[in-house]
């Protein structure tokens, strides 16, 4: 407990008086400012702060928490070991993992299903913090996932790995489990319904 320090107090100044009662000085003063903005923005648009969104994008912070992605090992296999840390810590309970076994000794356990329901996600970033394998990240910079269908927000494991999968599809031949959205989806919707 820290000791209280004596506060220094300042009384705010209330305005009033004859000049103010005249209305006009303040009105002219106000008009001067609005006109300055007006002419600057009409002539050079130098003060305009709006961005024309879809064409122009705002700079986002390098720490921006965007859509998740699942990282991969150097040999191209998913880094995640299905330890359920992220699923446990998630306050929105939007991660759904089902672990599977691999005969490959360098993998052993890996996620058969790894769904994130981005509609429920609150983008808190706790899953990233909780992952002991650096397997999940939110550094994609994707913040706009708008869609008219709920089902598009169900991101499956392969969609979350897409950055990698796009380039290196051949590296997954031995994966014995669903790789397409349609195959994986029934499980995630079943989870939602349950």
């Amino acid at each position: 407990m820290q000791t209280a320090k004596k506060p220094s107090v300042k009384t705010v100044q209330r305005q009033g008086g004859f000049l103010i009662d005249l209305y006009l000085p303040a009105i002219i003063g106000g008009l001067r400012i609005t006109l300055r903005h007006f002419f600057r923005n009409v002539i050079t648009q130098s003060d305009v702060v709006t961005i024309s969104y879809p064409e122009q994008k705002r700079r986002i912070s390098p720490r921006w928490r965007g859509r998740h992605r699942l990282t991969v090992r150097e040999d191209g296999f998913i880094k995640c070991v299905a330890c359920y840390m992220c699923e446990t810590v998630c306050p929105a309970k939007c991660i759904h993992i089902e672990a599977g076994e691999m005969p490959d000794k360098s993998v052993e356990k890996y996620p058969v299903v790894f769904d994130i329901d981005e509609l429920r996600c609150v983008f808190c970033g706790l899953c990233v913090e909780a992952c002991p394998k650096d397997a999940i990240r939110m550094d994609t910079g994707i913040y706009s996932m708008a869609s008219t269908e709920r089902v598009t927000f169900d991101y499956t494991r392969n969609m979350l790995m897409d950055a990698h999968a796009k380039t290196d599809k051949t590296k997954f031949p031995s994966t014995p489990l669903p790789l397409t959205q349609e195959e994986a989806l029934p499980q995630s919707t079943a989870k939602l319904a349950g």
Binding site: A4, K10, T11
Partner: peptide, 26 residues
């Protein structure tokens, strides 16, 4: 009433920082 928790029950490092507490009259 100049009551401000940053001064009345200091927390964090507010004791090391100077500021005035503005109060009104009416």
């Amino acid at each position: 009433e100049p009551y401000d928790l940053r001064r009345a029950e200091p927390y964090l490092v507010y004791n090391e920082l100077d500021f005035e507490i503005p109060v009104g009259t009416v």
